[in-house]
Amino acid sequence: MHRIGLNIRFWVQAAATLLTNAYLKGFKAGTLYTGSLKHVCVPTLNCYSCPAAMYSCPIGALQVTIAGAGGLDITATQGLWARLVAISTSLPMLTIGFLMLVGGVVGRAACGWICPFGWLQELLNKIPSPKFNGPQFVKYAKYIILIVFVFLLPAFWLDEFDGGEPSFCKYVCPAGTLEGGLPIALLQPQIRSQLGWLFTWKASMLALILVLSVFFRRPFCRWICPLGAFYGPLNRVSLYKLEINKDACIECGACSKKCPVSLDVPRQLDNAECLRCLECRNICPVNVISLTGPGLKTELLTPKQTAEINEQTD
């Protein structure tokens, strides 16, 4: 089977970043694109407040929809019928369905191939420096962030008008600060003059993530990103997935060294952290990792071929 070259992923990431942020006029004018493409979400974290953004951000869309009709807090002050209507219009079915569809077909491949913020972290990690893996348990933080900041707070933390707000955008998202906050602050002096402690907090978060990216592989994707948390569990059941013939693996470690999220590939290939980037598959010297799914054939070694490899390496 044709193996996708490593450099192709770099160019796909670059092209996706440009295509999803193609309204370059926005940088000049300090305004946003307001065309109908913004009815559509991209499958990655890409701030819709970026002057160049052409599409909507799915994590922003989830929060806005939940918070939009006064959140899901049925104890709020409206009458029962009005509340029920508000709740039914507040369920982010379109966005959840879209993310389930993407994750159900390709798992976390959008993270590995087209997310601008993921790509930026990978580029920063190329800066020569000591590299670390970080403690394993931190990866669970992103699930808590998804549940608390994307679903619960926008639904139940309401203001005096029974309106919720996008809490992940407001308190956490460094992609929003980089793609929206900083350019808007630079381009619009009247907004710049109003920025306060919240901007300082978010800019510090961004700076921390960018510095950490030099020493750790994709720290935001592995530890914080709610979109990664949404897609991750779908890796196990997605239509297209990676498989390894463990019997034929020669344990050379080349795959794990290359993995952009520091997985122990032979043992963790089916992991929720895998970005489906195919780097491990491309670098394996004995071709024991394969992409499977409809239209693709599983490349399985026969026991005889496995024995041949083992003999050669003994």
Binding site: K38, Y48, S49, P166, C169, G176, I184, L195, F199, A203
Partner: peptide, 11 residues
Amino acid sequence: KAIMVCSQCIG
């Protein structure tokens, strides 16, 4: 939401 600058996104 996406066609106006989101005050939460920009901090």
